[in-house]
Amino acid sequence: MAYAYLFKYIIIGDTGVGKSCLLLQFTDKRFQPVHDLTIGVEFGARMITIDGKQIKLQIWDTAGQESFRSITRSYYRGAAGALLVYDITRRDTFNHLTTWLEDARQHSNSNMVIMLIGNKSDLESRREVKKEEGEAFAREHGLIFMETSAKTASNVEEAFINTAKEIYEKIQEGVFDINNEANGIKIGPQHPTTNSTLPSSQGGHQAGGGCC
């Protein structure tokens, strides 16, 4: 399970928007309708492939409750990517985005790639936030945007992988200093045989030792 890079992600957003469910869907490919409240932070990991390179995503799934905020903020630092999640069926979770964004920008490095996620897209009938609103917010603040459903797995892979692609591009452009671990990127153990020689059968996305 050697990897070329390790990216640290954080998932943030109001409580109950489906952060832990998104993670579970991504790492274990399953959905749990009832999820325990996250205390502090929980973890997940999975290996993905970008540009023929194995990349390990180490995901820090934070508690959404306001009262945990002072603790979870501590974990923002050193993240390369953030998934900022709101619930399309709850307007208030969308309204709180500005606060979350400010918080994230303040406590993490400026290059952090942020993906805005409107979750629960399967509950179209209960939608309170239009897709266009999400897109507009993302455009305004320079974020990537997607609507997902942790329940149907729609766009879940894409959300995590597109974030990684953006980070990867930034590495290629030299925006990220990969030798500075504060950027949330670690270089994998150096191989005598490079990763490009890995069999192409591994082209698909492989589930790593995901566990929660």
Partner: peptide, 18 residues
């Protein structure tokens, strides 16, 4: 490797941060 698989490393890292 196993320790990491059980998320021991991540929890340790988080504990160190706190």
């Amino acid at each position: 490797m196993l320790f990491d698989e059980f998320q021991g490393l991540s929890h340790l890292e988080a504990l160190e941060i706190l």
